[in-house]
């Protein structure tokens, strides 16, 4: 079975908190994705087997939620909010900047597997718009020069073999 022992242990650890087994499906898919960076067709089968659920049930859930990546994603998952407040504050410029710099469109991954770019819907950061979610972290109040600096930083962090976008980076300063 391709589900790692670590993931199994995590799920077993929370099993008692929920009245049904199916309630564990979304946590399990999150954990698999954390572990492998995406959810492969094999992982879906393994999840079904592990929770003793029909594969169809696992698939219908996995395909419903946009956060579950059913295709491999880059090491750095760039999700730019393009909803109203971010759009009013220039998110389109940021999108064009990333498309040009990374030479990919939305929904695509760079050939070297480093970056995936996508549009996101409202990330609840409208007061600090525009916002870019990088893996787990939010980067708020961005403009094009800051974005370029940020991408430079990720480039060098990746080159040094560091993990990007999973800091304990605090959300923006509130008025």
């Amino acid at each position: 079975m391709a589900i790692s022992e670590k993931v199994k242990k995590t799920i077993e650890g929370i099993r008692h908190q929920f009245p049904t087994t199916q309630a564990l499906l979304i946590p399990l898919l999150h954990e698999i994705q954390q572990d492998k960076n995406w959810i492969s067709p094999e992982s879906l089968k393994d999840a079904a087997e592990f929770l003793e659920l029909p594969l169809a049930k696992v698939k219908e859930v996995a395909t419903f939620y946009t956060m579950f990546k059913l295709e491999p994603v880059g090491k750095v998952n760039l999700q730019l909010c393009v909803n109203i407040s971010c759009w009013l504050n220039g998110s389109e410029k940021l999108l064009h900047c990333m498309e040009k710099r990374l030479k990919i469109g939305c929904g695509e991954t760079t050939a070297d597997g480093k970056y995936t770019l996508s549009e996101a819907e409202c990330l609840a950061s409208c007061g600090t718009a525009p916002v870019l979610q990088v893996n787990e972290d939010y980067y708020e109040n961005l403009d094009v020069p800051q974005l370029n600096k940020l991408l430079d930083q990720f480039d060098s962090e990746l080159a040094a073999g560091k993990v990007v976008g999973k800091s304990t980076h605090q959300p923006g300063v509130w008025p």
Binding site: E121, C122, A124
Partner: peptide
Amino acid sequence: EGEPGTFKDR
């Protein structure tokens, strides 16, 4: 929280 324009619960 996800209604566009809303960020109070965060």
